[in-house]
Design a protein around this nucleic acid. Structure first.
Length: 199
DNA sequence: ACGAAGATTGGCT
DNA sequence: GCCAATCTTCGTC
């Protein structure tokens, strides 16, 4: 079943980031159903986090969506090429968010292969935030969409991820954040082949 | 109005 | 391992 808004609207984005592991992300784009199990996430803790787009209370046209009540999508363009998908969390006015960095495909794998221009299934297909967005057809058109909508949603399917099966470590690609880059706010499922590799 | 930098990826050496 | 691709965003002039 789809996660209720109450799941997203809690204040502890680290807990939410951890609990999103083992949940299932789906999209229906152009009538094609695709999705998979979330295996890697990163928490971005609003105004107090130098790595966050909302650091120091930054409120711009792009980050506006982060200040909405939890349970909507924040999709933005990175490096002019990649659409990165985030889950907005916490109460309205608190711009916390979780970046979904990797999934293990389960639904519509043929469509995902086609979108990624691949012929055989390889972890590269959805290992990394830009890659998974491409596989699931996620673009900025989904920005602001409610996560219970018919276009994009997250489901609980009874998957249990033990604490000892979770790896934590520093977030990827946020060197500009100084000391905050070292916070262990990246979460992934131990030994899962679809977790992205840090460069 | 201008320009630097970016929550990345894939191809080439 | 290195580097180009590609274009929006945001700080500064």
């Amino acid at each position: 079943m789809k996660l209720p808004d109450a799941f997203y609207q809690r204040d502890d984005v680290l807990t939410i980031s951890r609990e999103l592991l083992g949940k299932f992300l789906f999209t229906r784009v152009n009538g094609e159903l695709t999705g998979g199990m979330i295996v890697e996430t990163e928490a971005y803790r609003g105004t107090e986090d130098r790595a966050s787009h909302a650091w120091n209370g930054r409120l711009t046209n792009r980050t506006r969506i982060m200040y909405e009540a939890g349970g909507v999508a924040y999709v933005y363009l990175c490096y002019g090429i990649h659409n990165l998908f985030n889950v907005v969390t916490a109460a309205a006015g608190v711009p916390h968010a979780v970046l979904i960095r990797a999934i293990e495909p389960t639904e519509g794998i043929d469509v995902q292969l086609e979108r990624r221009k691949m012929t055989v299934l390889h972890p590269r297909i959805t290992a990394g935030p830009g890659a998974l967005s491409r596989a699931l057809g996620i673009t900025r058109e989904l920005n602001g969409m409610h996560l219970g909508s018919d276009s994009v949603w997250i489901e609980e399917r009874g998957m249990v991820i033990e604490n000892k099966a979770i790896v934590t470590g520093p977030r990827i690609g946020v060197g500009y954040a100084g000391a905050h880059a070292l916070f262990p706010w990246r979460f992934s499922i131990r030994n899962n082949k679809f977790v992205s590799k840090a460069k």
